[in-house]
Computed example of a mutant assay.
Amino acid sequence: MNTISEVRCSINEIDSEILRLLAKRKELDIKMADLKYSQGLPVRETRENEQSMQKLMDAGMELNLSPDFVDSVFRTVFANSLSQQISYIQGIVGINHQLNRKLKVSFLGNVGTYSYLATYKYFNSICDYIQPKNCTTFDDIISAVETGECDCGVLPIENTSSGCINEVYDLLQKSNVKIIGELTYPIEHTILVKQDTDLSKIKTLYAHPQPFSQCSDWLHANLPDVELKACSSSSEAMDTVRKLDRDDCAAIGCREAGALYSLKAIHGNIANQKRNITRFIVISMSNIIVPPDIEAKTSITFTTENTPGSLVRVLNVFSSHNINVVKLQSRPRIQNNLDNEPRGVWDETFYADILINVNTPLMTGLMAELRQVTGSIRVLGCYAASDATGR
């Protein structure tokens, strides 16, 4: 083996063998998913993966391979394995409509929040038991998923009345989580009380800041002098009113959730927009693979130069491929370890939801063209569009 071509030929043979082994590993991933599904076991095996990784790094050092290199390679392999297993089980769920396993899920607030209701609505057909992780901030929801404490998290991202939830968009800039699902949930804000009372007696109103924003017109017209006290979640607001047990305190929440706190509604349908709907996203640390026969939505972020026509050039790429952009949102760009571009004072990050499956040749070509007209671009996730799932 004395020539470059001979060495290259040997390297190619090794690469081909690696591919064959990865394909064989994929077959075993599917078998593993099938066994986990039939036995009702969780898909994610954090402790087992960490133990395997340590053994691999130790073995790699004996073969003169750096631990960082081994970690980088097998983190990708493990992530793909998890993605394959989740996708396979989702296929079973699509046939059997029930997945006999447990999921750890983080969401905002406790029992009765809209996030709580949305979480159980989404996962009702996916698992028979949810182990909830009640969080007080959006950041906590994401952190629980990033650390492996939870399999998934549920985040509200926009509302038909108050618009986009900017804090969530900003957190997605800094996080490695993947969007694996979405759902919409109808929001019916009501005034909830513990004691028999009427609106004229209410002096203090408790709610999460979002309901205050979404009901601002009604509050200004009907409770202009009431003190508004913000809570970390709707469940905290309802629990506070339950504990105070006074006729001059009320909370904003939905009628069904209020009943869980022994509260009753004295006035309903108070949102600025009568058709008040919140869109939630479901996050995980691994991508899923959406079957080709299901309408897929892909969420991306990208940056552009601060010059005339830069955004138009990006949108023209979507238009030329007949790709429907169903959401476009801009936020100030946050410098973080996922973004190595130099940052200007007024630089923006754009978020786009596009109706396309990421695992298609069309998407591959689209991304290649987008890289020519963007500063940076990142896929946040590909998932079944909510209209397609009926959720």
Rank of each mutant, 00 (worst) to 15 (best):
K121R: 13
C249F: 05
I89K: 10
F212E: 01
K243W: 01
A251E: 00
I356T: 02
H267K: 15
L63G: 00
N324M: 14
E295M: 06
Q329L: 13
D347P: 05
F69T: 15
C249L: 06
Y122R: 05
R20F: 05
T160K: 03
A271W: 01
T364F: 10
T389D: 04
R246N: 05
S72H: 10
R275K: 15
P308K: 03
Y37D: 11
L362V: 12
G390H: 02
G253Y: 00
R279V: 06
Q214V: 14
D71Q: 14
I4V: 14
M285E: 07
C249E: 07
G390Q: 01
L370D: 00
I30S: 02
N49M: 15
A33I: 04
T197M: 06
N357H: 00
V290L: 04
S320F: 04
L171E: 03
Y37T: 04
K26G: 08
V373Y: 02
G153Q: 04
S310V: 08
S5I: 05
R333V: 08
D293P: 06
G258P: 02
Y185V: 12
L192T: 00
M61W: 00
R331D: 06
W346S: 14
S5L: 09
I281E: 05
D15R: 12
E305M: 08
K55T: 10
